[in-house]
Design a protein around this nucleic acid. Structure first.
Length: 198
DNA sequence: AATTAGATGTTCT
DNA sequence: GAACATCTAATTA
């Protein structure tokens, strides 16, 4: 059921990003199992992409885990508040990653509502990368670099989403990346209401 | 419905 | 010290 390292280690990040749509992501911390179906993602490449933290081989304490072999997490803190979940892809030394921007909650909804301090289930529970990290209970200090073959966080396989059901647009919040901000590397499932925005 | 302000803390210059 | 792969509540209309 769990996706294998070979899946994440494919060389084309954009391809892996699209393949992740429709798959299910789960976290399990102190007995609480939470997760759902991935509906919105973005690709970031370590080479030739100014929007990526590790562009041009930039290697710092923060970006180090992006250089790991595909199949682990890259979680970082954004705007001092949000813990963003990325999936590291490609082989060791090549810093590519996929940002999980939204998912459709299916498992542990009660637990996720509690983490988000909400009482009613609505789209905003898991729409937007900051909300995804919070709903799944992620913390960049505790969960960065975890292997997806272990039992804390993982992704399970599912049938491929048809090409005609995938919408691609430019990525969100990367205006600083100049011409690379124009790359159509954000993908979401057409007709899903569990996405951050149209 | 659309826009704006404030929160928050780590990273890199 | 500036910037940052953002979210929410409050304000304006």
């Amino acid at each position: 059921m769990k996706l294998k390292p070979t899946f994440y280690q494919q060389s084309d990040v954009v391809e892996v990003t699209k393949l992740l749509l429709g798959k299910s992501i789960f976290t399990q911390f102190n007995g609480a199992l939470t997760g759902g179906i991935i509906t919105e993602v973005e690709a970031y490449s370590g080479r030739n992409d100014k929007a990526c933290h590790a562009n041009n081989g930039l290697r710092t304490a923060r970006t180090a885990t992006m250089y790991n072999a595909g199949g682990c997490t890259y979680i970082y803190l954004c705007y001092g508040i949000h813990h963003m979940l990325n999936i590291v892809t490609n082989t060791e030394g090549l810093a590519d990653a996929v940002l999980i921007r939204a998912f459709e909650p299916t498992t542990g909804i009660e637990q996720m509502l509690e983490r988000r301090k909400q009482s009613k289930l609505r789209n905003s529970l898991t729409a937007g990368p900051g909300n995804v990290g919070k709903a799944l209970g992620l913390d960049f200090k505790q969960h960065n670099g975890l292997l997806l073959t272990a039992d804390q966080i993982w992704i399970e396989d599912a049938p491929k989403v048809a090409e005609e059901s995938i919408i691609s647009t430019t990525r969100i919040g990367v205006d600083y990346a100049e011409e690379d901000a124009l790359k159509p590397w954000r993908f979401y499932i057409k007709d899903s209401k569990w996405i951050s925005k149209k």
